[in-house]
Amino acid sequence: MENYVLHLLTMIGIYAILAYSMNLVTGFGGLLVFCLAGFYGVGAYTHTLLQVGGAESRLADELLFSAACPFPVALLGAALAGGGAAIAIGVVALRFRGDFFVFATLGFQMMLYTVLYNWNELGRGAFGIYGIPRPVVFGWEINQPWEYVVLVGVVDTMVLPFLFLLYRSPFGLSLKALRDNERAAESLGISAFRQHLSALMVAGAFSGIAGGLYASYVTYIDPTSFGLNESIFIVSLLLLGGSGNIRGPIIGTVVMILLPEALRFVGLPDSFAANLREIIYGFALILLMYWRPRGLAGDFSLR
């Protein structure tokens, strides 16, 4: 039971990064994106490939490369890769606005998934990668669930303040202006493309870090953890909690992580429960959009 609570705390810590990253793009920039799980996955795979390797690794020769880097370096690599993926996606998708922008991000999400799933030489495709080494941070090997909670907590306290700072900075102000009225903001000399791309890049980099944390926590990754459903989950938790401020995303994260756990205690058969959970998310999205488009505690409603 204790470990179970620690597990939930770890997951909340990881998803908090995703929620706050998405918040920058959606709550401040006003852009709905459905490819955050893609950046998350790119981060997870990069982190894994950078970390595995060395003498005792059995999988190393089945992967595209394996660098046996220390944990902090691998995490940094994950951030760079996530940010890079976000730039690549943004450069193309930001030519659009509205429905087609959202659709383009959805398309990219599916594409990243297809690549991870089919490119066997990269990361064994559908088979996934197991035996990801446990993190060692400056000589401290992290094994126990409570140690993971500490690690995630430390990373969160290092990473999230950057996002909170950005929310309040001139950059955040310019994003909000673009969200309110793009052409008026451009008439003041603010480049929508540049600011949106920057926001995406930051969100991608932080999602990459979240991916690295996730990979080294579960020690096994496969593409199904980073598909469209995952992106939808991230969007749902942000929309549920509300965006455009600091309290919304964390409320959404906590609720959405705990909700399926509550369902678990009802005692439904496993196969059934997974689908039922999705159905609940689906209805939640519909009702949310109808009754409360700004979420439980948000400052911004989609337009």
Partner: peptide
């Protein structure tokens, strides 16, 4: 009727997709 924004309708539509998909799966 509510003059909801395009993005809101799109998200709701996605919600409907998830519901249909999983009902069929069940």
């Amino acid at each position: 009727r509510r003059k909801a924004s395009n993005s809101a309708v799109m998200v709701a539509s996605l919600g409907a997709f998830i519901v249909i998909e999983n009902v069929l799966a069940i």
